[in-house]
Amino acid sequence: MELGLAGRRALVTGAGKGIGRSTVQALCAAGVRVVAVSRTQADLDSLVSECSGVEPVCVDLADWEATERALSSVGPVDLLVNNAGVALLQPFLEVTKEAYDMSFDVNLRAVIQVSQIVAKSMIARGVPGAIVNVSSQASQRALANHGVYCSTKGALDMLTKVMALELGPHKIRVNAVNPTVVMTLMGKANWSDPQKAKVLLDRIPLGKFAEVENVVDAILFLLSDRSGMTTGSALPVEGGFLAT
């Protein structure tokens, strides 16, 4: 299915690894000019060598002032993927202030800040746009040791709805994708224990975790005009986990 994304300009956060990196690669292949944001310069360097034309921006999105400086002159953006995120897992009774602050700074506050910068530019230019927030099935299901992570993603789903409500009149669509465990390098490392994985897999009707391309395909669909009447949604990519 032709998505018609060629010629547009996108900004992707968390672009150095995993879902973000694969999203950048897919967008470039679709003829999109991409601004890739990561806190790791080495990841950006290797990404630029793989995808010519990618514009790298190295910044830690947990730093509000540095993010403002780095993105204030990023130029016109038509598509935004808020993918950057952290997963700091602790039992509820052991949650630390540091883990709480870092999780909400990156998983929620940075989404607000980056989206404000991009959306204000879209509105000033009078152009339509699309924003996709990478959420999680953990926004809707309690998982042990995920108290802070689940909370950030639950908040992100509601933020997505509010953004859709307020930005819709400006013809800016905002949606979330909510994957299960994704087989990135991090996903494989965290869920390589068969016993640990079985507990979750037994709750997934399709009996498997998501591959990166499953999530990237959903992101590209929501960025494209093929989803032109979809906004404020949370699209599950979780093999039926939320149906159980």
Rank of each mutant, 00 (worst) to 15 (best):
M1K: 03
M1I: 08
G4C: 04
L5C: 11
R8S: 10
R8Q: 14
A10G: 06
L11F: 11
T13H: 07
T13L: 05
A15Q: 09
G16D: 08
K17L: 10
V24L: 00
A26C: 07
C28K: 14
A30W: 01
R39K: 14
R39A: 14
R39H: 15
T40C: 01
Q41W: 03
Q41K: 12
A42V: 12
D45N: 14
L47W: 03
S49L: 11
E50A: 15
E55W: 01
C58H: 00
D60W: 04
D60F: 01
L61E: 10
L61A: 04
A62Q: 08
A62F: 07
E68W: 07
A70M: 09
V74C: 13
V74Q: 07
P76Y: 05
D78N: 15
L79N: 11
V81F: 01
N83M: 01
A84G: 06
A84K: 03
A84W: 07
P91A: 05
F92Q: 10
M102V: 13
F104I: 00
L108Q: 02
L108I: 04
V118E: 00
S121H: 15
P128K: 01
G129R: 09
G129L: 06
V134K: 10
A138L: 07
A138C: 12
R141C: 06
Y149L: 04
S151H: 10
T152L: 05
T152R: 09
K153L: 12
L165P: 06
E166M: 00
P179S: 06
V182K: 11
M183L: 15
T184S: 14
T184N: 08
A189N: 11
W191A: 00
W191K: 06
K196R: 15
A197K: 09
A197W: 04
L201K: 11
D202P: 05
N214G: 13
V215P: 04
A218Y: 08
L223D: 09
R226D: 12
G228H: 12
G232T: 00
G232M: 02
L235R: 05
L235F: 12
L235E: 04
E238Q: 10
G240W: 02
T244M: 14
